[in-house]
Nucleic acid binder design. Structure first.
Lengths: 357, 357
DNA sequence: TTGTAGGCGTTATCAT
DNA sequence: ATGATAACGCCTACAA
């Protein structure tokens, strides 16, 4: 590896000033073709890479968009699962950023240490996409004072900033209504993810909304729970544990279980199998997300599809817009979710799709 | 959003020089506690974020590691699949980088336009992890002249640089031998991924090695193909097409099909089902990667597990080492793969695991 | 078409 | 314990 060369060397060896080298490298105008060739030649010989920090400093824009998420892979359980939400969001962000020539800087923030880390990252980027749970409200507010920030899948209370999220409530309500209305199930249970997860909270709210609405409409005596029947931390193992808990705490299994995400539903399915309960005949189940495994598992999982990739795309798009006009009004985008009907709910796999909005 | 403030403002309002502010922010020494408090207070009031570009310029190190990969999500087919290789590599890289406080900059490079992009990225990072197929040999060599580079899953010919990869050949050979020796299948077919993919090439080589070895040892007349029987581009749909092609081109289906990855195997499985062929009774199949769906699909897929996440971790670790001592000898790490036996090969699911090395 | 020179926001080396 | 001040490598008016 050669020593790094600078624009000065290139200029000197080309017999021009650094200004001219800069013009050529930035595809500007104001130089002869011969000069251009010569400079390019020298630059290539030297293997010169323009220093991004110097550029960023001079241009007051580095061409990097930051993406913060809660620590990944710390949880051994979650390691094998996929595509985790953030993988898809990252992809979407990368794609949208590439459209304008920017790159994406990713970093996980874990608790206390994450605080300093987040500020350090914030200083290195032109704007920041922050996913739910990766930053405290205070830290977020502090950072948002000096650089554009867009929230992804954040709780409503933090929506003083630009934000994009999926219609978790609507999707969850849709799938619960399906269970209620199409299948006529009455004894439903909800398995939540992490207690503080905004997504999980919204999905439970959708579950409740469906039950409440149904009660009002039909006059039936439906028990509308104020808290989820169990928690499974959004993981497969957690889903199995939650399902076991559900079975152990009652004399009869619930007729249907609405899981907060697909991974927990898959875990729940294994446990039901182990307990010799048939799905959907004895117990119907549903998930949320529509990960690849939901299609492949048997019975195929009825679930709600949320546009994870698009979340990342829209977040970056919104961020770029914000960077363009810092004083524009606050934006808040909710992307629709879709009901994906397969077999685990009891349907004969007509594979219908209904959108939440 | 306030106007961005600088170290000068903080210094002025604190009644100190910028040097002192810098010392405090970098957790250095040489200031009184009172001064420290005052500066921190002012900085917080101002919402000051130290400018990363300026820091990077002054320190000659920005704290960012770059990760280049071939364009994701361009192929609509691949969009739904997961966890794609690079998602996992990204995670591994992020984790290893976080250990030393660095962040990871990701960017896809697509063909010609990717060239300039890659150089731009290279200028913004302290070192670069490059995955197979994201950069031409020439571009790679050029960039590697001025900044540390580590290759992931690259072809051997490019191994003039530090590199880390999985034992594709060994794993593929292992699974093929399993088919040959444990099950006694003789009529095997191989479905490759993209023709230029180093991984695919190595896996086919392992397939051939197993056949060759078997022929030599047993004296049996086994046909050792010089090219794969079909290509499926590593996607589910491609795998289905390749399987159809295989069936249409012969009077009898092959007894077993070794797919270059899990996604193609899953596609192949669907097609076999559609053609009323039973797996593994009529046709046995195997995959490669061990994605989540491989476990969940029925029959569960016998496959080779490769440590994708670890690939990313090791790559970054190697890169950091290289950045530490630029003149050290070249490194080349091959991580072992593991045979994951399930049902699709014809086994009665004993779930054995055998390592490739 | 080309060069000069100041500025971008930090860090780090000397002084004091 | 603190302050001047010179880098760091590039961009960009402003001149020529």
């Amino acid at each position: 590896m050669l020593a790094k060369s600078t624009i000065y060397e290139v200029a000197q060896r080309s017999g021009v000033s650094t200004a001219t080298v800069s013009r050529v490298m930035r595809n500007g105008t104001g130089f002869s073709e011969a000069t251009r060739q010569r400079i390019l030649q020298v630059a290539s010989e030297l293997g010169w890479l323009p220093n991004g920090s110097a550029r960023g400093l001079a241009e007051r824009r580095i061409g990097i968009i930051g993406l913060l998420f809660p620590d990944l892979g710390k949880d051994a359980e979650a390691e094998s699962e996929s595509p985790l939400f953030v993988d898809q969001v990252i992809r979407g962000a990368e794609r949208a950023a590439t459209l304008v020539g920017d790159a994406v800087l990713i970093a996980s923030t874990e608790g206390a240490a994450g605080r300093e880390r987040a500020r350090s990252i914030a200083g290195k980027v032109d704007g920041l996409v922050v996913t739910a749970g990766s930053l405290s409200k205070a830290d977020l507010a502090s950072i948002a004072r000096s650089i554009p920030v867009v929230l992804v899948a954040a709780q409503a209370s933090q929506r003083a900033l630009d934000a994009v999220g999926a219609d978790n409530l609507g999707g969850s309500r849709l799938i619960t209504e399906h269970l209620l209305e199409v299948h006529g199930y009455r004894d439903l249970a909800f398995v939540a993810g992490p207690a503080q997860s905004p997504d999980s909270i919204q999905r439970f709210a959708g579950f409740r909304a469906a039950l409440t609405h149904w009660t009002e409409r039909s006059g039936a005596e439906l028990d509308v729970p104020s808290t989820p029947h169990a928690h499974g931390g959004f993981t497969e193992a957690g889903g199995a544990r939650a399902m076991a808990e559900l079975l152990d705490n009652r004399e009869r299994p619930p007729r249907a279980v609405v899981f907060g995400n697909d991974e927990m539903a898959i875990g729940g399915l294994s446990l039901l199998r182990a307990r010799k309960l048939r799905v959907p005949t004895d117990v119907a189940i549903t998930g949320f997300d529509d990960i690849a495994s939901a299609r492949h598992i048997r019975p195929a999982l009825t679930t709600v599809r949320q546009p994870m990739r698009q979340l990342g795309e829209e977040a970056v798009r919104m961020l770029l817009e914000r960077m363009g006009k810092p004083e524009a009004g606050q934006q808040n985008l909710t992307l629709p979710t879709e009901l994906e009907i397969r077999r685990s709910c009891g349907c004969a796999s007509t594979n219908t799709t209904r959108s939440s909005r």
